[in-house]
């Protein structure tokens, strides 16, 4: 006779139809004879059905307008931030996290202004500040080789493992792997993975910023940069988890920072030449 403690852990899979063959019939057989387990199974099935049947929340009609306003506000913020300040922000993601780009403070006012500015400027006149969204990024990306492009979101690919880079360039907070012991996320929240995630997010931030400026570089410099970055990313991908991966990520970060510094120096000239507008 199988004991209840052995049945209970299988009930979820059983109820969801995931136990096949003998495993399923063992549970079914036990449930026929055991009232206590049957009560648990009945409750769990009712719970599952109740969750599935919860009424869907209505999407607020204002939501799309809000998204557009935030996009516009973010782009204006991109454009108005001096390039040296953007560079500093890239290097200090922890500070960025404390002061999110799309914070709610003053958002409404900023958004109202932003929409006006967006309209006034039309689309994509400004090579540094993408408006409307997506336009600027299409400039650098197609030129990159497909496997090694500036593609932070792919830190989340299985080969990288962990919880890294979840938000891609404009995301996200590595701390979101919640710390509670009994959270589902606790399983993902091993320290090494968190540290790697923070590094990966930093690298992603840097890469995203470089994607903005890279299009202004001469072709040979772009190629050199792409090749070097590809190598560094291969090293990251091949490093496995833990310290090796963190070392590889730090190497990538150092290289990206260096590239930004060089770009920064070069772009000072451009800024001085055209003070009102970055071209």
């Amino acid at each position: 006779m199988i004991r209840c403690e052995e049945i209970e852990p299988q009930l979820t899979a059983y109820l969801d139809g995931e136990l096949e063959g003998p495993a399923g019939s063992v549970v079914r057989g036990h449930l026929r004879g055991c009232e206590a387990c049957r009560a648990i199974a009945t409750d769990e099935a009712a719970l599952r059905d109740g969750l599935r049947a919860l009424p869907a929340a209505d999407v607020p009609a204002s939501m799309w307008a809000g998204v557009q306003a935030r996009l516009a506000a973010a782009e204006v913020a991109d454009a108005e931030r001096p390039s040296w300040r953007r560079a500093v922000a890239r290097w200090t993601p922890s500070v960025r996290r404390l002061a999110p780009t799309f914070g709610a403070v003053g958002l409404a006012a900023a958004a109202a202004a932003a929409l006006i500015v967006w309209r006034a400027h039309g689309r994509a006149e400004d090579a540094v500040a993408p408006a409307p969204p997506g336009v600027a990024i299409t400039v650098p990306i197609p030129a990159l080789s497909p496997d090694t492009a500036l593609a932070p979101s792919d830190r989340t690919a299985p080969s990288f493992g962990g919880a890294a880079g979840v938000g891609g360039a404009h995301g996200s907070d590595p701390r979101l792997v919640a710390p509670s012991d009994d959270d589902v996320t606790a399983d993902l929240a091993h320290e090494a993975a968190r540290t790697s995630a923070a590094y990966a997010a930093t690298a992603d931030n840097l890469a995203a910023q470089l994607a903005d400026v890279r299009s202004g570089w001469p072709a040979d410099r772009r190629q050199q940069f792409d090749a070097r970055l590809a190598d560094l990313r291969i090293a990251v991908a091949g490093a496995g988890e833990g310290r090796g991966r963190q070392r590889a990520l730090r190497a990538e970060i150092r290289y990206l920072q260096g590239a930004l510094i060089r770009d920064e120096i070069a772009s000072n000239d451009r800024v001085l030449a055209a003070p009102g507008r970055l071209r």
Partner: peptide
């Protein structure tokens, strides 16, 4: 916002 700004990547 993250989707649209991250879509390029």
């Amino acid at each position: 916002v993250r989707v649209f700004r991250g879509l390029a990547n």
